[in-house]
Design a protein around this nucleic acid. Structure first.
Lengths: 348, 348
DNA sequence: TTGTAGGCGTTATCAC
DNA sequence: GTGATAACGCCTACAA
C-alpha cells in the first residue's frame, strides 16, 4: 500500500509526483528545493510532472518537517488604524506571489505577561519571521526574545533601534527639524508643540527635532508651549485648547501626528480662528485625512508602507531570491509636504 | 529510542506527556480533545502533567494530521482602510484567547483568475474558515467555491446573501431610508445622492433606501440629483461639484459613505458654502473621521466590527464552545447618528 | 546523482 | 477505557 493511486478530489502529493515521474520522493524534494546536484534530465522530467499535476507542496507537512512555518507575523500595539493598515499593505506587497502569508497579531502593551504571550505565539506558530511595529518594536526585551527563540525579526522605528539587518527606520528627528525650520522661515516665533505619548520613541524623536530647530534659531520658548498628547484626535484637541489659552498664544502649532493635528484644527475652529490666517498647523504622517480636511494639512510624509515592505523583504528575500541578499535599505527619509495649513503669522 | 528524554530548550511534545503520565499518546490526545470516554482519574492525571510541563499541542502537526489548519482567513478587496481594519479587529476579538490566528488575504477583483487564486489559497493553507468581506463577499461563485472545497465561510454584506449560518448582514436599505426620512422631516425637498460604485451590493441597497424614502414622501427628483461615486474622497468631491452646479441645487446631500461625505463637505467649502446652513450632509459608516471634521457629520452607524466578530464566532464557536451553537445573529442594525451637519434648508 | 530509512508531532483505526 | 500501529506529507542523514 505504499503507492496509492490517488483518486478523488484531493491534491497531489509528493508521492504522486515521484511515482508518475518514476523517481523517489527525495528526488522530487530536491527538485522543489532547487538542489544543485541533480541530473538536468531528471529535473526537467520531474518538473514536467509537477506542472501537469499542478502539484504544490503541502505547507503543513513542510512546516512540521522544517519546524518552521512560512508565515510572517505582524506584531503590533499601534493605536492608529491608518498606520497599521499601511504596514500590512507594505508587507503584503512584499510577499505577494510568494509562499508566505501574513498573520496579524495585535498585543496589549498594558498586559503584564505580554512578552510571554508573544513568545507563545512565536514558538507555537513557528513563524518564519516577524515584523515588529512601533511602539512595541522599541522594546529591547522583545527583540532579545526573538533572538533567543530563533525567530527572525525586523523592527520598525523612528530611530536606529538595532543593526541594519533587523531594522528599518525613518529620520523623524530631522524631518521635524525641517518642518519647524520652515515655520520659523515663515516668520513664526511662538510655536506650540503637541507631543506623542511618553514612552514612544517616535514621540521623543519628534520632540527632539522640535527642540533642535528652536536652538538653531536661538528661540527660547516657555515649557508651556509643549503640550502632551497621545496621538489621538481628542488629545490633540485638548492640547490645542491649552496652547491657545496661553497669552501670548502660539501663532503655529506642530502636532506630532495628523490625527492630533486634526484635533488642533478643530480646537481652532471652535474658537472661531481661521487656519492658516490666525494659526498655522503642521502634522506628521500624511495620512489620507491630511489632504481631506480644510485647509489641507501641511505635514511630514512618513514612508511607513515602504518601510514595511522593506522589512518584509529583509525577512524573506534570502529565501525567494536565493542568497543574493539584495541589500534592502534600513533608513527611509520623511519629507515635508507643504499644503494650505501654514501661512505667515498675523502681525499683531 | 522510542521515548527520548527531551532535553534542551525545545517544547514538550505529546510523547513527553504520555511518558511522564504513564499513558499512551492516544490517551493524551483524547484528553486534549476532550473525548467523553475517558476515566476521570486518567484525565486528571494527564491534565496535571500537561499543566506541569506547560505542554501545548503543536499546531503544525495537528494541521497535518487533521488536514485542517486553525487559521481564519480574511479575504477582501475592500478599498476602505477603516472598514478593513474594523473587520480585522472584530475577528481578532472573537478569536482572542483561542488557538485560532488570523491570516489576511487581499485579492484583486480585477484579476481574471482571481477565483483560482483564492482557491489555491484556501486549499493550500487548509484554512479552518474564511470571512468574506464586501464587495467580494457578494460573489456567489466564490461562496460556491468555498462549499466545493469544504471550507467554512461567512459572508459579510449589506443584504441577506446566504443562509444565516453563512452570513452576517446589515440593513443598509432601511437605514438609508430612515436617514432620508429625517432630511425630509427637517424640511428638505431637493436631496442629492452620491452613490457607491456599480456592482457593490451596498451601493445598490443604499440607493434603494434613498428611492424608497422619496417615494414614500411623494418626492419626484430629477435623475440629475443622483451622482455616481466610488466610495473615495475624490469621487465624493467630484459628485458634489456636479450636484452643486445644478439649478436649483440640492439643499441636502446624502453620500453613501463617510469618505465621500467628507468630499462633499470639501466641495461645499470650496464654494464658500456653510454647512449645515447652506447645505446639509449625511454620510454612512460612522468612521472616526465623521466626528473629527467640522461640522461633525450626521451619519449612519454601521456595526461592521460587531458583524465581523459575529462572523468569526459563527466560524469557530462550534469548536471553542463544544456543540452548544450559541446562535449568533445574522442581521445587524445600522442606526442614524445625528450630529452637526444637518439643519433645516435655507428658505430661499 | 539518486534512493532508503526514519523522524517531525499529531490524530485515526482497530484491536484488546 | 486504553494502547499499538499506521497514517498525514515533507525533509534530513546516510548509504549506494
Amino acid at each position: 500500500m505504499a503507492a496509492k493511486n490517488r483518486e478523488g478530489g484531493s491534491q497531489p502529493t509528493i508521492n504522486d509526483v515521484a511515482r508518475i515521474a518514476g523517481v523517489s520522493k527525495k528526488t522530487v524534494s530536491r527538485v522543489i528545493n532547487g538542489s544543485p546536484l541533480l541530473n538536468e534530465d531528471t529535473r526537467k522530467r520531474v518538473q514536467e510532472v509537477i506542472r501537469e499535476l499542478g502539484y504544490v507542496p503541502n505547507p503543513q507537512a513542510r512546516a512540521l518537517a522544517l519546524r518552521r512555518n512560512f508565515l510572517i507575523g505582524l506584531v503590533h500595539d499601534n493605536p492608529n488604524a491608518q498606520t497599521v493598515l499601511k504596514v500590512q499593505q507594505g508587507i503584503l506587497e512584499a510577499i505577494r506571489d510568494t509562499e508566505f502569508e501574513l498573520v496579524v497579531r495585535p498585543v496589549d502593551r498594558g498586559m503584564v505577561n505580554m512578552l510571554d504571550d508573544i513568545r507563545q505565539f512565536l514558538e507555537r506558530q513557528r513563524l518564519f519571521g516577524v515584523v515588529l511595529m512601533p511602539p512595541i518594536s522599541e522594546n529591547d526585551s522583545l527583540a532579545e526574545l526573538c533572538r533567543q527563540i530563533g525567530c527572525r525579526y525586523v523592527r520598525m522605528g523612528s530611530a536606529e533601534l538595532d543593526d541594519p539587518t533587523n531594522m528599518v527606520a525613518s529620520n523623524d528627528r530631522e524631518a521635524v527639524r525641517d518642518a519647524i525650520r520652515y515655520l520659523i522661515g515663515e516668520g513664526h516665533r511662538r510655536i506650540g508643540f503637541v507631543s506623542g505619548p511618553h514612552g514612544f520613541r517616535s514621540a521623543l524623536e519628534r520632540r527632539l527635532g522640535f527642540e533642535e530647530a528652536l536652538e538653531e534659531a536661538d528661540l527660547k520658548l516657555p515649557r508651556s508651549m509643549v503640550a502632551d498628547g497621545n496621538y489621538t484626535f481628542e488629545s490633540g484637541l485638548l492640547a490645542a485648547e491649552r496652547l491657545l489659552d496661553l497669552s501670548p498664544r502660539p501663532t503655529a502649532i506642530f502636532a506630532s501626528n495628523d490625527e492630533m493635528a486634526t484635533g488642533v484644527l478643530q480646537a481652532a475652529r471652535r474658537r472661531g480662528m481661521d487656519v492658516p490666517r490666525d494659526l498655522s498647523i503642521v502634522g506628521f504622517d500624511d495620512t489620507p485625512i491630511a489632504s481631506h480636511i480644510w485647509p489641507p494639512l501641511t505635514t511630514v510624509r512618513w514612508p511607513i508602507a515602504t518601510m514595511a515592505r522593506s522589512a518584509a523583504l529583509k525577512l524573506t528575500v534570502s529565501v525567494t531570491e536565493g542568497e543574493q541578499e539584495v541589500d534592502e535599505p534600513s533608513m527611509f527619509l520623511s519629507t515635508l509636504i507643504r499644503r494650505g495649513s501654514v501661512a505667515a503669522p498675523p502681525h499683531n
